[in-house]
């Protein structure tokens, strides 16, 4: 296993560095601008949650990091470096050495990542043989230790199980084992616990946190649930209309969100203590990505909007160390120097 040291200090070169990442899709009707200038920095061993509602561009961003969006209809621009490699320039051959050993991904539905006709053990061993060219026997032994790593009980017996023979939680663990088979430095997780029950979700979240710490991986975790972020994230980036509108260390984002959309979203989230109160809601609907407003994408729904908000996309400004907000109205330029509130 890759035993890189856990994230104590951020390493000088980040594991992931994305600048002005844009993804659009050509559809028969119109061009869908799904991601519109995302910057991301992720240190080795760090965990970032991308939080947002349906259609905000979370999954497209994640797929862009792996160059998984359908090549023919997708236009991707911007800079993307992962583990000191320029992902935008990779050839197909380079991509196949990138996917797996450098970065791999887990999904909400494990059956989409696992092949129904092969046993779990066979699939994991195959992936290892393909990437590392070691003997089948050695690969099989590694597969067993991977199933143990993800805490599958009676792992030796489960090597011979087909995906459909496993319960939801075990299947999710098998998919994680598969994703870890080539010791990736970056793990991308697209809502891996959304379909799971509460008592199983917390098990998988704790497992992912433990694996990340022990293996020193960077993790980018997509979720629409702030509760999930509260359990696994170091930092949270909130997406709206294909842009990051706020980014902060997780405690700060939960305790003192600044962007009107983030405040609205957290205010609308049901939690212990909302009983008997009226939930605050955000009026209106998310923007049409084929016709994004010229200014702040949230302006048509924002109670704080000023005339200037409709004119130009506001910049993402740092309000305190590590806390960035894309709203000049709640975070005017004057107080952008680090302040202690």
């Amino acid at each position: 296993m890759n035993m890189a040291s856990p994230a104590t200090a951020a390493s000088p070169t980040p594991l992931v560095r994305a600048r002005d990442l844009c993804v659009s899709f050509a559809t028969p009707r119109a061009t869908v601008n799904a991601v519109n200038g995302v910057n991301l920095d992720l240190a080795q061993g760090e965990s970032l949650c991308i939080l947002g509602e349906s259609g905000s561009g979370k999954s497209v961003t994640l797929r862009a990091l792996m160059r998984l969006n359908p090549p023919k209809r997708t236009v991707v621009t911007g800079e993307l470096n992962v583990a000191n490699q320029d992902v935008m320039q990779m050839t197909q051959a380079q991509l196949s050495q990138y996917r797996g050993p450098v970065v791999s991904m887990i999904f909400q539905e494990p059956l989409s990542a696992l092949d129904p006709v092969f046993t779990i053990g066979h699939q994991i061993a195959e992936a290892i043989v393909r990437h590392e060219g070691i003997s089948r026997k050695a690969a099989r032994a590694r597969a067993l230790s991977l199933l143990e790593l993800v805490q599958i009980p009676s792992a030796a017996r489960r090597l011979g199980a087909y995906p459909h023979e496993l319960s939801g939680g075990l299947r999710q663990r098998a998919m994680i084992a598969m994703a870890l088979s080539c010791n990736p430095r970056l793990l991308l997780a697209d809502e891996p616990t959304t379909a799971l029950d509460a008592t199983v979700q917390i098990q998988i979240l704790l497992l992912l946190r433990k694996l990340q710490r022990e293996l020193g991986m960077g993790v980018i975790f997509v979720t629409h649930d702030i509760g999930v972020a509260s359990e696994v994230a170091d930092r949270v980036a909130v997406m709206y209309g294909g842009r990051v509108v706020e980014e902060a260390p997780v405690e700060i984002l939960i305790r003192s969100p600044r962007h009107p959309y983030t405040s609205g979203l957290l205010g609308a989230t049901v939690h212990a203590g909302t009983r008997g109160t009226r939930l605050t809601t955000i009026p209106g609907a998310p923007p049409d990505l084929a016709e994004l407003p010229a200014g702040c994408a949230f302006a048509p729904r924002c109670t704080r909007a000023e005339p200037g908000c409709h004119k130009a996309v506001p910049p993402l400004l740092e309000v305190t160390a590590g806390h960035h907000v894309r709203c000049p109205v709640v975070c005017p330029a004057r107080i952008q120097a680090p302040i202690n509130v």
């Binding site: 509460a198 979700q201 917390i202 704790l206 702030i226 509760g227 509260s230 212990a272």
Partner: peptide, 14 residues
Amino acid sequence: SRPSMDPSRRRTEP
């Protein structure tokens, strides 16, 4: 099993 909503008091055991 509900998430803590408080990163300083994360659960360690499910």
